[in-house]
């Protein structure tokens, strides 16, 4: 049997990869995918907890997270398309009309 800690370490690793991806990649779409990676990291730990606690709440929350992530993807892509139409780029460093 795989111990809980292994899952948690995997979860934390995936989460951190997401964080670093978000902080370093310059393409908005890839940044957004990094956020999805973070969410999936959380999902792994939730499912693992759920299994080890013999409790369904964790998995239910995972379903909700996946659903919300889908909605989020739709909205995120819509925003990116609107931006791309005006700017013709998805490079995040081009977006600093506002600062200070």
């Amino acid at each position: 049997m795989v111990p809980l800690n292994w899952y948690l370490m995997l979860s934390a690793t995936v989460f951190m990869i997401g964080v670093f991806g978000f902080l370093t990649r310059k393409n908005i779409i890839i940044m957004f995918m990094s956020v999805e990676l973070m969410l999936n990291g959380v999902n792994i730990s939730l499912v693992a907890f759920s299994h080890y606690l013999q409790d369904l709440r964790g998995q239910i929350l995972v379903f909700f997270i996946i659903t919300v992530a889908a909605a989020e993807a739709a909205i995120g892509l819509a925003i990116i398309i609107a931006l791309f139409r005006n700017k013709s780029t998805a490079h995040v460093d081009e977006m600093n009309e506002m600062k200070g």
Partner: peptide, 17 residues
């Protein structure tokens, strides 16, 4: 301080992290 607010998204995220 307002210079911290560079307008670059990733700077914001870095500050948060």
């Amino acid at each position: 301080i307002r210079k911290v607010q560079t307008g670059f998204l990733q700077h914001y995220a870095t500050i948060m992290a």
